[in-house]
Amino acid sequence: MILVQENDFDVDALYKSLLKANKTGAVAMFVGLVRQFADDPEEDSSFELEHYPGMTEHNLQAIVNEAYSRWPLLDVCVVHRVGRLKVDDQIVFVGVSASHRAEAFQACDFIMDYLKSRAAFWKKESKGNESHWVEANIKDEKSLERWSK
């Protein structure tokens, strides 16, 4: 399941959707949250995530397909929010079920690394009355190197 949506998501329901009777030995999950990025915690901060409908889902599906080709997975669920988000809001859920924990952990980590760099999302941070578009992160690009075949 791949969803791009404005609404929040229910982690427990997403977890349960990954369980496959008599086959699931492990579920690895990652939940990303909006952290405080303003220097002053009292300063009003938020950000807005934009995406290119259709292209974003296509990119996410390609990332998930690559994970399926690398590991014997039972199921994958990716939910990514768009729109205006504030500190402590949930942004992203990645869940992977497999028969064994190693595959679940590795695939979840792989999907998050590629999602950060290859999915079509744009982020604008706002602090007080100022806002700016966030540039690509070199650290995120470096994380992809470990997945080279």
Rank of each mutant, 00 (worst) to 15 (best):
E57T: 02
S45V: 03
Q61K: 14
Y68V: 12
R70P: 09
N59C: 09
R35C: 00
E66N: 10
L33T: 11
N59Q: 09
G54V: 01
Q36G: 03
M55E: 08
H51A: 02
E42L: 06
E48R: 13
A67W: 07
A28K: 00
F37P: 00
E42N: 13
D40F: 12
S69D: 13
I63A: 09
Y52N: 06
D39I: 02
R70M: 14
S45A: 15
A67M: 06
T56C: 08
P72I: 08
S45M: 09
H51L: 06
A38K: 02
Y52W: 14
M55L: 08
L60Q: 07
H58I: 10
S46P: 08
Y52G: 01
P53D: 03
A62E: 10
S46G: 15
A28C: 07
E42F: 05
L60A: 13
E42C: 07
W71Y: 15
E48V: 13
V27S: 02
A28W: 00
G32R: 13
Q61V: 05
E57K: 07
V27N: 00
D40C: 05
L49S: 05
P41K: 06
F47E: 07
D39A: 11
V27Q: 02
F30P: 04
T56P: 03
F30N: 07
A67R: 10
A28Y: 01
S46F: 04
Q61M: 09
E57M: 03
N65T: 15
L49T: 01
P41Y: 14
S69I: 11
E50Q: 11
V31M: 06
P53L: 01
E66W: 03
E66L: 07
V31A: 02
H58Y: 14
V64H: 02
R70I: 14
V27H: 00
F47D: 06
T56H: 02
F30W: 04
R70E: 14
G32P: 03
G54L: 02
R35I: 00
F30A: 08
F30T: 09
S69W: 11
Y52S: 03
F47S: 06
L49H: 07
F37T: 00
R70A: 11
D40S: 08
E43W: 07
R35H: 10
T56L: 05
E50A: 04
S69G: 10
L33F: 15
D40V: 04
Q61D: 08
V31D: 04
V27Y: 00
Q36N: 11
M29Y: 02
E43P: 06
H58M: 11
E43Y: 09
F30R: 02
Q36T: 04
L49R: 11
S69T: 14
Q61T: 12
H58K: 15
N65M: 08
A62G: 11
S69Y: 09
Y68N: 14
A38P: 01
